[in-house]
Each structure stands twice: as C-alpha cells, then as structure tokens.
Design a binder for these strands. Sequence first.
DNA 1: TCTGGGGTCCTAGGACCC
DNA 2: TCTGGGGTCCTAGGACCC
Length: 416
Amino acid sequence: MKHTIFHIDVNSAYLSWEATYRINTQVSCIDLRTIPSIIGGDESKRHGIVLAKSIPAKKYGIKTGESLFSARQKCPSLVIVPPNYKLFMQCSNAMVDIFKEYFPLVERYSVDECFLDYTNMSHHFGSPISFAHHLKDKIQKELGFTVNIGISNNKLLAKMASDFEKPNKIHTLFPNEIQEKMWPLPVRDLFMVGRASNAKLIKLGIYTIGELANSDPELLYAHFKSHGYLIHAYANGIATSIVKPCSPEAKGIGNSTTISFDVTDSRTAKLILLSLTETVCMRLRDSDMIAKMVSVSIKSHDFISLSHQMQLTESTDITNDIYKAICTLFDEAWNKEPIRHLGIRVSSLSSKTNTQLSLFDFDKHEKYTALDESIDKIRLRYGNTSIIRASFLHSGLRPLNGGMPEENYPIMSSLL
DNA sequence: TCTGGGGTCCTAGGACCC
DNA sequence: TCTGGGGTCCTAGGACCC
C-alpha cells in the first residue's frame, strides 16, 4: 500500500521561536527573523557556537555550528541571543498539540521536527497538498512561526523534501520526482551523509546524490561497510521505516558540559562529575528506570576525547552508587591532560518496577533510596538549588549541571 | 575551529570459551 | 610454542542526527 507521509520542520526553529516570543511579549518591536541574528552561547564560558541563524544571517555565510567569533567576523552587526530551552520546549509542545487535533499518531523526531502519516486521510481532509497548506497556515496564525512541510511516500523522501527551499514552503518528492529534484543535489545534502562520508565520496569521484544512486553498491560496501548500502538505498529513495506511534524508550541518559576553564586537578573534576551525576540520576529516577552501565567521557584542552565505561554489579538509580563508579572510571581513564569537557552517561536501562534486589544490600539500598527521594522532592518543591551537597559550598562550581527532568511548563497558548 | 549538548548505531580488536 | 578456527561478549572510538 502507498503511504502518504508528511515531514514538518520549523524554519530556523530556535531563532523563530525567540523572535515570536519577543514580538508577542513586546520585549522588542524588531523581528529577529528580518535582521542578521543568531541564537548562540556564551563565549566567555567557552560555549560560543551558532545554534540557529536567521535567513539574513545566512546570507553572510554564517553556518550552524561555527564559532561566534567567526560568525561576528562575517557580519559585525550580528545580533546574538542566548538560547531559552524552556521556551523552545513550550513552542514544540504547542505545535505537536495542533498535530494531535488531526493525527492519532505523531512521531516527534526532534524538538522541531515531526513525521505524520496522512495515509487514508484524503477523504476527510482533502488532498495532501491542500491539507499541508491548511496545517502550515494554522501554525503560523495560531503560534506565529513558519514551517516547511515535505510530502512523499516514505519518511526519508518527506524529510529530504522539507529541506528544499525555505521558509514557509510545501514541497513534494514522490518517487517519480527523485531524478529531477533530488539527484542533482550535492551528495552531502543526503540524510546520513555527514562530513566524513562526504569527503570519502568526493575522493571516489561521487559528487551528486544521482551519482551515488547509480554507483555500484559493492564498491560502496568496500569503503563504507553497511553504511554504504544504506546511503545507496537512500540515494535511490528507498527507506522502510514507518511513522512510530511514540518515541521508543531511551537507551541511555547522559549529561555533559564544557567547563569555562581547563581543569587540572582531580578534586575539581570530580565535583563537576558529581554535578552531572546529580542531574543524570534525577532524570533516571524521574523515568522510573535503573541503570547497569556507567560511562565517563573526557575532552582535553586540545580536543582529544577519551571514554571509559563499566558494568555495575547491580542496576541502580542511587546517586551515591553511580557517583562512586564514575570516580573509579575517571581515575582509571584520566591521563592528567588539562580537561575542557566532562560527560557522564548511564545505559543498559531497565524498568525499576518489579526488579529484584539482593537481600545483602537491602538496608543500604533503603537508606540511599530514601535520601534521593527526599532530595528530589525538595528540589521539585523549592527549586533545584534549594538543597545542594556541602562539597560545592565556596567551590564556585554549579552544584547541578546539565538538563533536568522535564517540568510541567504551561502550554504556549496560555503564555501568549 | 576562538570548535555545545543531547542522543543512536556500527565496527575493530581483544578476551575468553570450546 | 615455529600454536586452528569458530563463536560470543565487551570496550573504545567514531560516524551520524538534531
């Protein structure tokens, strides 16, 4: 059966959302989307990269991911605004709520992208193109920002289509349009061809998606292993993934941070690791999961990364137990190079309910579980900084680091 | 590169077993 | 030790996405 799939992509999401917010709250009468502007981090904290850009900023050659320093060199009058992730989540939720008015099934691919399955909906809502216009215009009218919508028979082609001309546009990329609309594009534009694959393909003399589509899959396998078969199929518009009812359960939970200075002593490093462990464990408990695998990653002053991982003897969600493992891993892994970035991650997750506990650890387990529970409650009620570990006092370091469990933000319409 | 933070998946190589 | 051939599991690193 032929499916009809939509891919919705918010145009310059972070920037559009901030612009919409500023207009609606009269913070400023200037629409950020109409001037060279970007959403970016704080250079003094070494978080200085471009997260999103306006179309006028793009005209200066500014790219997502580049340093603020180089962006400002390209455009000295550039307006730089810090990210407001709570706002972004509200805007994303508001958009998903609109989709749910029509679609029983919304796949949230990222904060600013969704897949929808329009198969068999034409007799209710009209042709895919006319309904896509209705959807796009409704979002703009009710929420104030624009989206691109890509339409095809599978997710890959719908996603490629939404990436064509922007903003506020609807494109189709049905199989009979592949040759004309997709094959002339540079191979780098294909989903799953990143920097490394692009460089290797260029060396093989493959420059366009069409050339990739028509190259020998065995040659690709020789250079890319299974990834070669994947990008060959994608270049031919072949993909089998279906729109999923909801996001599958997470495989792991991690937080990481770039530190505003180079860390050269293990005491400071471990305090930062503790601040990351606190937030990761809060998220873990929030999701009612326990973890068996723990890993630490370190990025040095000269951008060399290393990682180290271990299995715990038993799955847990106890901050103290996970932190102990983190410290062991750090001591084993650190080569004394100055540290720029630290990360921790837990994985091999299982559901907390109906898990057996060894009798041996029962008392200790009870004690720490009760402790974590109380701390989580106090933080939920009085704020995340209301209770912190004594070791952070006078340290000048943040006691919690990285994303927190999702709070219940008011939906956007009530905010505007 | 004055180069973020959250993820997923794949693979090479080593340990270990028979 | 002038040492075979599978299989499985684990780890570190790297690729990709937003």
